[in-house]
Design a protein around this nucleic acid. Structure first.
Lengths: 254, 254
DNA sequence: CGACGCGTTGAGTAGCCTCAACGACAGTGG
DNA sequence: CCACTGTCGTTGAGGCTACTCAACGCGTCG
């Protein structure tokens, strides 16, 4: 794994785990991170139906994308962490089809399609990297289908916590097994298709058996091995290979 | 919408709905369809863990990809119809992470990563098309998250039938509201996170109220408007715009 | 004809939901 | 500094939806 530079953006940290960026690439990636916009905690960033003519790169903070059901209930589609690119998959669509809300104070970079096209023009390695990220993203979505379709409350919560943990590790924002956790139990419930009551029960029970520990705004995974086993967890980020993309010289060196 | 040529492959039909293929593109797309391999009904095509060094284009027939839970239950991740590209998203991964089984007799074309790279080299328009398809695919996955997370049995079944219907229409394999439906109720149940019993109840109830009609191997949607309303259905294929991809001259003409 | 897969229906159960009350806590304003 | 307020998490009682288990009929295919 490539060492990360001090002050690097989360997306650059992520990229650095898969390829050695050269100067041009570093600069291009940096251009995505320009002029971040500050967003206050708990504010709506985009509303459903808005034209999907730009995307966001998360610099810092957590966000949720979700849809509202006719009866008012919510389904969280994705939790967005630093380094995430929001709206990539919406490029072929005329408008956003979900709501986007900040959980914490955030710093977001706004991109146009032009920025992405620029990358596609100039650097096949970064293109391959971005597309690979998107494909892995899709994999994590199918993993969630398995969770929502076939798992009980307890396992849903376990799976969610694990997948959050490994994502935070990718951007060096987990200290061992401890990480910031700004979601309410309502948020978590809407992410895994439960109610806050079931989430509360599941978390309490897991804490009681010593699998995890909560303190305000923090989460600690105490028995990661047990939890991985319980849900047959697969870390999709472990084994990404971006060399499938054409024009790529073998790029990864550890 | 471009008229479809007689005998065209389903993928070409699909492409034709979004762009006017020129000769080169038609040929390249055709090269994906070469030498289809025949697969008998109900056979395992790939098993989990196999190296993901090739992909499949479905020429004809239905397939399921699914995972098995530790307790033996199944979660169907995707139903694959003619024109689908299977394994696109697995390219950055070392191995398939699901099982693939044929529901009917199938005809499959096997591609290597090289075929895809070839397209990426030679024609930005087809590249944009393929990537757009993948992105739309991801959208349908998030739609399913909403279904599995927040819908009751009846609505799950409705949503599944509608999404199947619109996909079949895209490849000209639905006659109005009637289409071949080779899935068992077990298959359907595993696709929407239910049991065969619940599916049976839901289907019976829908038939009784006159929303649909079943005959062996066939399905007819009688009250599409009602069903769309019930699940707030969005047809993701209606409004794909592939012009976001760089190098694309404005390509779509109706 | 028998075997098997599939669909249907019923009875009983379990897990999660709904509703509700309450305590802890942070933020606000006096 | 302290009430006041609203959000969040917890816990309990009761209900409902979908599940489990089971039996049976039907059609298909050896």
């Amino acid at each position: 794994m490539v060492r990360t530079r001090r002050g690097e953006s989360p997306l650059a940290i992520l990229a650095g785990k898969y390829l050695n960026l050269n100067e041009d690439e570093r600069e291009l990636l940096g251009s995505l991170d320009n002029q971040p916009r500050r967003i206050a905690r708990n504010s709506e960033v985009v509303r459903e139906g808005r034209a999907a003519d730009n995307l966001f790169v998360v610099q810092s903070g957590w966000l949720l994308s979700y849809t509202i059901m006719p009866d008012g209930r919510r389904q969280v589609l994705q939790v967005h962490l630093p380094g995430d690119i929001i709206g990539f998959c919406d490029m072929p669509l005329p408008s956003f089809t979900y709501e986007l809300k900040s959980l914490t104070d955030c710093s977001l970079c706004m991109l146009t399609h032009g920025h992405i096209q620029d990358i596609f023009h100039k650097t096949p390695r970064l293109t391959g990297f971005l597309l690979s990220l998107m494909m892995v993203d899709q994999k994590t979505h199918t993993d969630r289908l398995r969770v929502l379709g076939r798992m009980n409350a307890r396992d849903r919560v376990i799976h969610f916590l694990l997948s959050t943990l490994v994502r935070l590790r990718m951007i060096d924002q987990a200290e061992g097994n401890i990480f910031d956790f700004p979601m309410t139990q309502f948020d978590l419930a809407d992410a895994v298709g439960l109610t806050n009551v079931s989430v509360s029960n599941a978390l309490s029970s897991l804490q009681e058996q010593g699998a995890l520990k909560r303190s305000t705004g923090k989460m600690q995974i105490l028995d990661e091995a047990y939890m991985r086993e319980a849900v047959s967890f697969i870390n999709r980020f472990e084994s990404i290979d971006i060399s499938w993309f054409p024009y790529l010289p073998p790029a990864k060196d550890k």
